[in-house]
Amino acid sequence: MKFSAKPFLFITLSLALLGCGPSGPSERPLMEPDWLEVSDFIAPGVPADFGDTDPHPWAGATPAHYPIHGIDAARYQGLIEFREARAEGVRFAWLKATEGGDFVDPGFRPNSARARAAGVPVGGYHFYYFCRSAAEQAEWFIRNVPKTKGDLPPVLDIEWNHTSPTCQKRPPAALVQSEMRVFLETLTKHYGTRPVIYTTIDFWRDNALEGFAGYEFWLRSVTAPPSERYPGTHWTFWQWTGTGVVPGVRGTSDINAFRGSPSAWQDWLARRSQK
């Protein structure tokens, strides 16, 4: 969920995170970027079913070490062919649902329906906006993301957003943590399962999240495994690229690994999916 350094990769999910203002879905239409061929972007350390347009020279614990992978996406990936994606190894998907207190991603509703129809576990994520209260944002997410049996737990995507045209606030760590708990506890009560927290290296460090207990983490680290960038932290999901190529997905996509075996993945789904 970071901006790619390569100009032609403007179609990545990261662009969906450029800020939150008064604009609505009608001003941010669903996109349909070009298809890319996995075979053109094969790279060492990348799982065989996927490619990467800007791969890292992985060593040690590579993404291919993990058997369970999934995507996260937003309107910039357009309509996703989830049957093809599932056939080629996509085992879960989180889709951008809301941002701040006034934006709904137009890709969430059609793509979540497509994922469910294809048998891909799917959930929604909320991109946090530091110029609205956590209570407002939790209410907005609940209003726009129905509780659906079998869906993945919701995700709080919280990171600094220095490119936002409307809000570049960086509250102190104590306030960040207290507002996070308001948002997370509100969603837990509504959906019956604790949200997952997605974040980045700098946000993790600046807000002392190594001491934020009670929630599972989904960590971004595109140049090393999380154990090197978040030392001593137990993680459940690892976002290992923002420039992946995935069958059934237009343009580039974030790709994520689950920390565990196929049987552990099934156990996790049984415990953590919405009931």
Rank of each mutant, 00 (worst) to 15 (best):
residue 55 P to H: 05
residue 231 P to Q: 09
residue 138 A to P: 09
residue 3 F to P: 09
residue 32 E to Y: 06
residue 90 V to T: 12
residue 221 S to P: 06
residue 266 Q to G: 11
residue 55 P to Q: 05
residue 181 R to F: 09
residue 208 A to T: 09
residue 62 T to S: 11
residue 162 H to D: 15
residue 20 C to H: 15
residue 117 A to K: 15
residue 35 W to A: 11
residue 200 T to Q: 11
residue 35 W to C: 13
residue 132 R to E: 10
residue 178 S to Q: 15
residue 108 F to C: 05
residue 243 T to H: 11
residue 240 W to A: 02
residue 79 L to Y: 11
residue 240 W to N: 01
residue 57 P to A: 07
residue 79 L to T: 13
residue 164 S to H: 08
residue 190 H to L: 06
residue 113 A to Y: 01
residue 203 F to G: 01
residue 109 R to V: 14
residue 230 Y to S: 04
residue 143 R to V: 03
residue 275 K to D: 14
residue 16 A to G: 15
residue 60 G to S: 09
residue 184 L to A: 10
residue 228 E to L: 15
residue 172 P to R: 12
residue 19 G to F: 03
residue 56 H to L: 06
residue 102 D to F: 07
residue 6 K to Q: 14
residue 154 P to R: 04
residue 151 D to K: 05
residue 217 F to T: 08
residue 130 F to Y: 12
residue 127 F to H: 11
residue 33 P to I: 04
residue 165 P to E: 01
residue 181 R to D: 09
residue 92 F to I: 05
residue 190 H to Y: 09
residue 221 S to L: 12
residue 10 F to K: 12
residue 28 R to T: 14
residue 209 L to Q: 05
residue 175 L to P: 03
residue 154 P to D: 00
residue 51 G to F: 04
residue 90 V to H: 02
residue 97 A to T: 06
residue 83 R to A: 13
residue 233 T to Y: 07
residue 194 R to C: 13
residue 269 L to T: 08
residue 275 K to R: 15
residue 192 G to F: 14
residue 217 F to G: 02
residue 73 A to N: 02
residue 164 S to L: 08
residue 264 A to C: 10
residue 191 Y to R: 05
residue 156 L to R: 03
residue 34 D to G: 13
residue 199 T to Q: 02
residue 274 Q to Y: 05
residue 267 D to F: 03
residue 253 S to Q: 10
residue 189 K to D: 11
residue 43 A to R: 01
residue 238 W to Q: 06
residue 97 A to S: 06
residue 54 D to Y: 09
residue 178 S to E: 12
residue 156 L to D: 00
residue 36 L to A: 01
residue 11 I to S: 13
residue 151 D to L: 07
